[in-house]
Design a protein around this nucleic acid. Structure first.
Lengths: 154, 154
DNA sequence: ATCTAATTGCAACTAAGTTGCAACAACTTC
DNA sequence: GAAGTTGTTGCAACTTAGTTGCAATTAGAT
C-alpha cells in the first residue's frame, strides 16, 4: 500500500526543512514527489485543483522549500520556473534533464552520470554543476528512423 | 583599429542568417559581441539607449537571430532570457556558464572543457549539452579566504 | 486552553514578453 | 536609378509569470 510511508515522507521532509506542516504544503510536495519531471507553479495549480492552495501560496511555498533545500530549481529553458524534489540529486550535481527537440518533453535522467567539469580557469571554485541535454527521446528517435527508411526505399 | 573588421563581422553574421542588415539589428549584435556575458533584452535596451531600437524590436530580433543560429539562449537561472553570440560554442556544446554565489555575476568559461555526458538510458540521442556551474569566482573566493584567516586567528 | 509567530488568501501591482496593425526601409527587378 | 515587394519596425494594447501589503487564520509552543 505504501500510502502511509508516503505521507510520512512528506512530513519528514517538511520538518527537516523547519517548515510548518500545513495542508497546502503537503499537497504541493505530494504533487512534486509523484511527478516524474520538474513542474511549474502553474502545473501545480492545476494538479491541486480549486480545492488546492492559492496561486500565491504555491509561489511562496516553492520558493521557501527551495531555500530550505528540499526542492531544487530545475535548469530548463522555458518562460516559467520549474521545481523538483531535491532527492535524486547528489551533493554537487543535480541529475541531468533531457529535453526532446521532437516532442518537447522533459525527462529526468536520474541514472545518467555526467563527470564534473575539469580544467577550470584559475581561481574558480565549483560547488554545483547542472546539465541540460537536448536531443531525441526514444519514441521520437524511432519515428525519425522509420521516416528515413521510407525515404531511402523510394 | 579593428573597427572595420568588426562592422564587417556584424554584416557577415546577418547575411549568413539571411536577415536584412538594418541599423537596429546591427546595433543589437554589436552590443552582444562586445559583451562578455549573456545579456537580457532589457540590458540591450539600456545599452542601446533611447536612440536605439524599440523594446519590441529587440525581443523580435533576439528571437529571430536565435532561430537563425547566430545567437544562443544561455541557460541561466533568472526571470529573463539571456542571449549570446553563437561563436565560442562548439557544435554539440555551448561553453559553460559560471554563476558566482557570492557576487551573483555570470562568467562565460570559454576555455573550460566539460566532457560530454555518457551512460545514457537506452534510446536517448544527445545532440547538445549545456552546463551551468555554480560556485565562487576568483574575487569572492579570495575574500572568503581572508575572512577565514581572521576567524581562525582569534 | 491560550498564545504567538508563521502561513495563507485576496487584491492590486510589477516585470517580461507577445500580438495586430499601419508605416517604413532593405533588397530586387526592371 | 525609380518602382515594387516583402521583410522589418514602432506603437498600443494585451497576456503571462511572479510579487507585495495586509488582514485573517492556524500550526505548534507554553
Amino acid at each position: 500500500m505504501m500510502k502511509f510511508a508516503f505521507k510520512e515522507k512528506v512530513d519528514k521532509l517538511l520538518s527537516s526543512a523547519r517548515l510548518k506542516r500545513t495542508g497546502q504544503r503537503k499537497a504541493i510536495l505530494e504533487v512534486l514527489l509523484k511527478a516524474n519531471s520538474p513542474l511549474t507553479a502553474d502545473e501545480i495549480v492545476h494538479a491541486t485543483g480549486n480545492t488546492g492552495p492559492n496561486r500565491v501560496t504555491i509561489y511562496r511555498t516553492l520558493e521557501s522549500m527551495a531555500e530550505a533545500g528540499i526542492l531544487h530549481k530545475a535548469f530548463i529553458e522555458g518562460r516559467s520556473r520549474c521545481y523538483e524534489p531535491a532527492d535524486k540529486c547528489s551533493e554537487n550535481q543535480c541529475h541531468p534533464h533531457f529535453v526532446c527537440t521532437g516532442c518537447g518533453q522533459t525527462h529526468c535522467l536520474t541514472d545518467a552520470t555526467v563527470p564534473m567539469a575539469t580544467s577550470m580557469p584559475a581561481g574558480f571554485i565549483i560547488k554545483r554543476q547542472q546539465v541540460r541535454l537536448e536531443g531525441l527521446c526514444p519514441e521520437c528517435n524511432m519515428t525519425e528512423n522509420k521516416r528515413h527508411m521510407h525515404n531511402d526505399g523510394k
